[in-house]
């Protein structure tokens, strides 16, 4: 590992034996000589320590009865009391299932869309047209989540354009934002509308690296378009898809929390209350600090387990891994 200040592989091997004996000393000398490199790292290390590691210690309040007056140290330990309270609370089942359903459906429905878009864009032969389509499809990515939610309220209101269209078929306008049954559809559809185009960039780029001769050869051998997409294009995309899928599953418990909160109305709560929005309401708004921290911790642990599990599964199936 520590190779002193050996600057090229060759000098490393030449002087390896000397360094072996003096590793400790040479490390110190290296640090002394290159202290500026460590100075470069310092701000990032300090910021991460303050804003990432201190809250990890702060999460111990999940096992305490935290009161701001007593501080984290002074508050009493209560063990798993808050976790039990959450698990036994009457709305636990609903909130937990809402979280799982919302993110699982979003992943299953949303994940393939950019791939399909990229495969379709790849068939556009004229690169100028392709570039322009891509440019248009990126646009919603740059719109803020507040505006997306605001647009959802405008389009889906009982007096909005969607209901105006539906008026041709049904008698009474539907109040989409107040009916729990529409919440997930709205959430997922607006998500696809906003990000599928931008998410396809990475796949389009991967496809443009495919050697055209591969396609030519396959065509000459009589492969149809669909066969070529399946055996050449999709194979090319597989590793990228695997990595992105792992990342998506790791984020499953924290997915789209900011948008979910914006799309919530008092009427659609039975479908729209997810763990993170609940943490916010109980932990911060109601100042039930320890209870909120406990639910949050419960959530991060599930995320962590999911990430590690999926990484292992995909690794076994595909040979791709995240870390």
């Amino acid at each position: 590992m520590a190779q002193g200040w050996g600057t090229s592989p060759r000098s490393d091997t030449l002087t390896k034996q000397i360094y072996e004996g003096k590793r400790k000393k040479s490390s110190l000398e290296y640090i002394k000589k290159n202290y500026i490199l460590y100075l470069f790292l310092l701000p990032a290390v300090v910021l991460v320590f303050i804003f990432n590691y201190i809250p990890m210690y702060g999460v111990t309040i999940a096992f305490k009865d935290f009161s701001p007056l007593k501080g984290i140290m002074g508050s009493e330990w209560v063990g798993f009391q808050h976790f039990i309270k959450f698990l036994e609370s009457p709305n636990f089942h609903q909130i937990f299932m809402n979280t799982i359903k919302l993110s699982t459906f979003e992943l299953l429905i949303g994940f393939p869309v950019p791939v399909i878009l990229a495969l379709m864009l790849n068939q556009v032969r004229r690169s100028k047209i392709k570039k322009n389509i891509q440019l248009v499809l990126y646009a919603p990515h740059f719109i803020s989540v507040v505006v997306i939610a605001g647009m959802a309220f405008i389009f889906l209101s009982p007096a909005g354009p969607l209901n105006a269209l539906l008026a041709l078929v049904i008698d009474r306008p539907i109040s989409f934002m107040s009916e729990p049954e529409y919440f997930r559809t709205i959430f997922i559809a607006s998500g696809i509308w906003q990000s599928a185009g931008f998410a396809s960039i990475i796949y389009v780029a991967a496809l443009s690296n495919v050697d055209p001769q591969l396609h030519d050869a396959a065509t000459i051998d009589g492969a149809s378009l669909l066969q070529r997409i399946r055996h050449i294009d999709l194979q090319t995309l597989k590793p990228t898809m695997a990595v992105l899928f792992i990342l998506a599953v790791g984020g499953i418990m924290t997915i789209g929390f900011e948008k979910a909160y914006l799309l919530q109305t008092s009427m659609n709560l039975p479908a729209s209350e997810i763990i993170d929005t609940y943490v916010y309401k109980r932990g911060l708004q109601a100042a039930d600090w320890s209870f909120g921290a406990a639910i949050g911790l419960f959530n991060s642990i599930i995320s962590l387990v999911l990430l590690v599990t999926v990484n292992a599964v995909v690794k076994k199936a595909n040979g791709e891994t995240l870390y």
Partner: peptide, 25 residues
């Protein structure tokens, strides 16, 4: 020490204190 510093950063990808402790901080 590159490996240790990298691990120090990477760990935050997998675990965080969450909203409430961050707010209190």
């Amino acid at each position: 020490g590159k490996k240790i510093i990298m691990l120090y950063f990477l760990f935050t990808m997998f675990f965080n204190g969450g909203m409430v402790p961050t707010y209190l901080l």
